[in-house]
Each structure stands twice: as structure tokens, then as C-alpha cells.
Design a protein around this nucleic acid. Structure first.
Lengths: 159, 159
DNA sequence: GGTGAAACTTCTAATAA
DNA sequence: TTATTAGAAGTTTCACC
């Protein structure tokens, strides 16, 4: 996969859009002393290149009733079942990310639930998937999301 | 924290914005057979209520050069150091999420790096934080992000 | 709560530099 | 590559349901 070359202007456009995707292109243009048309063209290019995959809302899941987060490590009976189990896991909506991992677990996933009872139901759901031998759960007492997304695309260039 | 009550219209507005934050309110209005003004007012209310915390771009980190993901479990010398260590960890931009957890580890975090060498540097950085006794790393061979965000705010109401 | 229309702002594509 | 421009489109407010 070829790395896409972004110049300083692209980075600054990304920075502003990462903070707020609905910021008017004219505002971006003003700050960067370029025209709104230029912003438009550059964003379009980054979209076409696949750098920008889309945009989404950041919702407050706690306010929506999901205050429980756990990570679940999954042991499989056979490694060959990985793909099958991963597919079943991805069907559970409360599983927000799943990884095939090296080391202790075969699969590792993040679960977002409403409360402990709800979490228990989800974990039992995972346990019940054919091929899963057992699971190990880690409960999050506090989550702190790193707001350095803005740096990620920048620092890379510097290294 | 009081749960905010969303009605069916709110849910549908969220659904569309989750897929694409830049979709015109007039488009949303047309689909839901309401006026654009109503969409505007409802979105504003959800923003004020904190349900919508913001919006952000979904970037392709692999295309930006970050193809390495690992989870790092951290053991502390003393639990009382948790807050201090968490703060140091959150200063590392490549750490995208950090959790205080129950069970095996004291802190658990996700690291996004460019390659194994870069990941090693980051893990050493974590190891070097005062109070960290040792770490355990799990390397992700494949990440599958669950695209059920759209369901999360809905299913809750149904339960 | 919602609407519809007016006033205002922004977008976008084409053209020109 | 960037700037300008103008018509199209979107947003936001407000008087009125």
C-alpha cells in the first residue's frame, strides 16, 4: 500500500476537520489563507485516495445508557476456527472492535454494555459460539480516550 | 446521569449523521418528511444535551503509515500510582485508549504504531514510566471494527 | 413541539490566471 | 496549482400553527 503524500496544507485541513467535520470550507480557507475551492479540491482528493474514509458523530455512550466497558480475551479450541468465530462475534452489536491476536488469546475484543447484567449476557453469548473454549474478561473501571488523533497524521511525517 | 430520551425521529437523524456528518439537513428532512428547521433544532438539542459530543473524520491509518496495533497490559508497583501513570501514558500520542481495569492488569491500553520497531519504542516508553513494574503486550494480527455504531443508540431503547 | 419562507451563508464547478 | 465568481444549495431564524 503506497503511502499518500500529504503536504502541510493537507495536514492543517485534516486537523480542522478532525475537530469538527461540519466546519465550513470557507472558514478553513480563511485560516489557511487559501480559497474555499482549494480546500474543496484537496478534501476531495484525500477522499478519493482513501485517506479520509468518512465522517462520523462522536456520541456520548454513557448518556445513552452504555456505561460498562470490558475487554474479552477468547481462547479457541482450534486456530482454524478463528475466521468463523470472528464472524459470529462481529454479529454482536455490543462488540465494538475485535482483533486476531498473537500471544495468550486467539481473539480479543472490546464490549460496550449497559450494566453488569447486560455485559454478562454478552459474554455468555460469546462463550456460546461454537469453537470458543473459554474467555477471560477484563473490566474497565475508567476509560480515557486519547485525543491525539490530530497528531497521528502529522507525527508520522516527522519520524 | 439522567438518560436522555430520544424519539424515533432523533434516532433516524443520528443514524444518518453517523453515516455521514456532512449530509445536508435538507436531505435528512426530506427523508423523514419533516422540515429542515426541525432537523436543525433537534440536532442542536442533542448537542446541548451532550448526546452528540462532536464529529470527526474516519481516517485510514494504514494508508497514513500506521499498520501496527497492539494492546499493552500494565502492572504497577503500587495501585496508588494509577492516576500518575495514566497521565503519563495519555501523553504518548500513539496510545489511542487507556483503561483502568480490574483483574490481571492495573492499566490496559491500545497502541497504534507504524511498524514493529516503532511499537517497540512506544512500549519501552511505557516501561520507563515511573511506577510501572512490567508490561505484557498482545499484538493484533487483524482488526475488524464493528460497524454497528448505528445500532448502539437504538437497541438500547428496545431492551 | 412543528412549519414554511425569508435572509443569510456556504458550496461547488467552471473559468481564468 | 490556485483564485475568482456566480448560480445552486444549505442553514438558521422567526412569526405562526
Amino acid at each position: 500500500m503506497a503511502k499518500f503524500k500529504l503536504d502541510e496544507i493537507d495536514h492543517q485541513i485534516l486537523d480542522m476537520l478532525i475537530d469538527n467535520t461540519r466546519i465550513p470550507f470557507t472558514d478553513i480557507a480563511k485560516k489557511l489563507l487559501i480559497s474555499a475551492g482549494t480546500v474543496h479540491v484537496r478534501v476531495k482528493k484525500m477522499e478519493e485516495a482513501g485517506i479520509i474514509r468518512g465522517s462520523s458523530l462522536t456520541l456520548d455512550y454513557v448518556k445513552l445508557g452504555y456505561s460498562f466497558i470490558a475487554y474479552v480475551g477468547i481462547f479457541l479450541e482450534k486456530t482454524s476456527q478463528t475466521k468463523f468465530v470472528l464472524e459470529r462475534i462481529n454479529e454482536i452489536p455490543y462488540v465494538t472492535v475485535a482483533h486476531i491476536t498473537t500471544g495468550k488469546f486467539n481473539i480479543f475484543c472490546k464490549v460496550r454494555a449497559q450494566d453488569t447484567k447486560h455485559a454478562k449476557d454478552i459474554i455468555f453469548m460469546i462463550d456460546d459460539i461454537e469453537g470458543v473454549s473459554r474467555t477471560e474478561t477484563m473490566i474497565s473501571l475508567e476509560e480515557s480516550i486519547n485525543d491525539k488523533k490530530r497528531l497521528m497524521h502529522k507525527i508520522f511525517q516527522e519520524l
